[in-house]
Every structure is written in structure tokens, then in C-alpha cells.
Design a protein around this nucleic acid. Structure first.
Lengths: 185, 185
DNA sequence: ATCTTATGATAACATATGTTATATAACAAG
DNA sequence: CTTGTTATATAACATATGTTATCATAAGAT
């Protein structure tokens, strides 16, 4: 009996996500979304109990985007690829990276350096490349991650600019050098 | 002819700085400052043309705090100390570090990796420790900085917790390992 | 002692934003 | 075709915040 929906939950979420992707959460508000939706604010509050609820949905979607990056498979060694994916996410979606990894939020997921199963997985991938024992690889990976995270942060804030080829070379060289130094200890 | 000032520019700036140090700029507003000053908002707008002007002054003060950290001299090698100071600033003043180095602002100072004279200085300090040529040290330092910045960011967001002794050991070991690997190339 | 004026309190105004009350209208069921 | 339900628009309300108008007052200049 009701009229057909012109604006779905998904429409609204998508618009909100795009705004956040370009500008972060700072500029996300009901009227801005309504404007881009070419509608009033009512559809938003019909579909979501509050702006906070909508933001939580957007946050989830951001995390999914990140996960897609991290699940990418290539012909490269898995360990190397995971570092490259992390950095690519930061470079290609700086606002999203900042939200997930450069600020403390209520939602923030597991503060993952080594968060459980995912962490275990990455250690095993690393072992394939380094040949270190599980425990040694764990310690080694902390350093690799810190370096990787440093590059990612610098790219996300646009403090440095690097081409993909430069990133790959930088990361590969540094990890090799670190490993060489590490093994000699 | 006028009554004596009860609230000076400095009083106001100090209170604003403390708020930002604890909570970032998000919670800085005229009424909040007035409350902590135990006054109305008038003294603020008598002393500053606008909140933006006050924020700019606070931003400068934040940068000065950072500079004080970076100028600290110890018995440690100068190059090592500069990395430790950078990280200590992030650990001890996470909100201030985030403002200066983890977000893009209008005021942001030189996006310093290697900014001019300061950058030159740090390269020379590094050479004392590594014995590399100026150009080689420059390339080496980029990597060291990226690692250092990574640790600092992780501490500022409280993603990792490290004691000062752990930081020192981690940084020293890693730089040594990096250097060893670097030289063998 | 009086006058002048910067200082500060109070209260108001403007704008931004979340949220909701009300009215309208679309559309399926009868 | 009538009716009940609900999606949407409009407009309002509430709150937060920057900013300013108004007024009282303290204290140096006269």
C-alpha cells in the first residue's frame, strides 16, 4: 500500500561512503547526503535510526574495502604482496586508511599487529620467504610491519609521493637488507 | 583608564593548548575555554580576532613543543637521539604528534623529510654514525626515517605500547641491521 | 571628582547539524 | 473507487558553536 521506495538503504550508504572516501567523516552530514541524493533528509532517517548508525555501516564498508585489498592474490610472493596491498590501500584511499589506522575510533577493529588468525597467516607467509622459525619470523615481522606502516602513513598524508614501482623496490630492498642484518645477529 | 586585564592572551593560549594536548582540536571551542578560564567568552574575543587566530597560535605552540624535543642533547649519538626524540614526542604527546604529522592541515609546516637546513643537519649527524657518503646517507636515512615514523605513528594511536627501553633497543637494533644489509649491497 | 575607555558579563544572533512533527501522495488491497 | 499504509518533502525544533551588541565598571587621565 505504500508508495515505492525511491531511495534505498544502499543508495544512501553508497553516497555516504563516497563522501567519506573523498573527504573523511568530517564533512559527512544528513543534509549533504540528501543533497547528493537529490532528496530531503527524510529517506535517511527512515532507513537509519540515526546518523551514528549510518556512520557505523559506512565504517564497515570501509573495512571491507580494506579487506578486499588484503585478499588480493598475484604472482608475487604472498608475504610481499600483503605489504604492497597495505601500502596500495593507503595510497589509493588515503582518507579510508587514515580512518582505519591513523585515528582511534570507537569502532576500530582489532588493533591488529598479529591479531589472531590473520596474524598467524601472515607469519606463515613470511616464513616461506625468509626461512626463519615461527618465533623468529614473528619478531622479524614486527619490524617489517613498522616500516610498511610508516610508508603507508606517509603516503596517506601525502607527505611523500611514490610511484608503485618505487614502492615495490623500496619495500623489497629494505626487507632484504633487514633480513640480511637480522640473520647475521 | 580601563580596568586591569584579568585574563591575558597567554592565559587563554595556555588553556587552549592544554585542551588540545589532551583531546586534540576537536573539542576546542570558545565556551570550553571560557569555562576553564572561569570567565565568559569575551576575554577570548578581546584578545583574538577569531577562534581561527587562536588556533593558529596554539598550532605554533605545538610546533615549538616538538622543536624542544628535537633539540634535546644527551650523551647518546646525535643521530640516534634525534630518532628517539621524534618517537618520544609521539609517545608523550600523541595528540600533538597526530596534529603535526598525521593529518593534513593548512598550517602544516614544511613537509619535512629532508626539509632544508634541518634535513642537512640530520644527514651529517647520521654520517658520523654510519660512515656513509653524504648521498648514500641521504638514501639510507629515508629508510630509517620511515621506520622511525612508523613506530611513532603506532605509539601516537596507541596501537602498540612500548617502554622507553624497548624503543631504544628496537630502534638501535633495526638501524644496525638495516645498515649491515645496506652496506653489503 | 569627573570623564573616558578598555575589560568583562550577559544575552542575543547566525549558522550548522541532528532529529522530528506534519502534511501529502503513491500504491496495493478490498 | 475507496482506503490504509508509509515514503517523502517541508518546516520546525533542539543543540552546538562562532560571533557580536549592550551595558556595567574599574581605573588612569583630566
Amino acid at each position: 500500500m505504500p508508495p515505492n521506495k525511491k531511495y534505498t538503504k544502499e543508495d544512501i550508504t553508497n553516497i555516504a561512503y563516497e563522501i567519506v572516501k573523498q573527504e573523511g567523516f568530517e564533512n559527512l552530514n544528513a543534509r549533504r547526503i540528501a543533497k547528493e541524493l537529490k532528496a530531503s533528509v527524510q529517506p535517511i532517517f527512515h532507513n537509519f535510526a540515526s546518523m551514528e548508525e549510518l556512520k557505523n555501516v559506512v565504517y564497515k564498508k570501509i573495512y571491507e574495502t580494506y579487506q578486499e585489498y588484503m585478499e588480493r592474490k598475484t604472482e608475487k610472493p604472498a608475504y610481499k604482496q600483503s605489504g604492497l596491498s597495505y601500502i596500495a590501500f593507503a595510497k589509493e584511499h588515503p582518507e579510508l586508511f587514515k580512518i582505519l589506522f591513523m585515528q582511534e575510533t570507537d569502532n576500530s577493529p582489532e588493533k591488529f599487529i598479529m591479531a589472531d588468525s590473520e596474524g598467524e597467516d601472515i607469519i606463515k607467509k613470511g616464513q616461506q620467504l625468509t626461512g626463519l622459525s615461527y618465533e623468529e619470523q614473528k619478531k622479524f615481522h614486527v619490524k617489517v610491519f613498522m616500516f610498511t606502516h610508516g610508508i603507508a602513513c606517509l603516503l596517506a598524508t601525502k607527505t611523500v609521493k611514490l610511484k608503485d614501482s618505487e614502492i615495490e623496490e623500496l619495500l623489497a630492498n629494505t626487507v632484504l637488507e633487514l633480513l640480511k642484518g637480522y640473520k647475521e645477529k
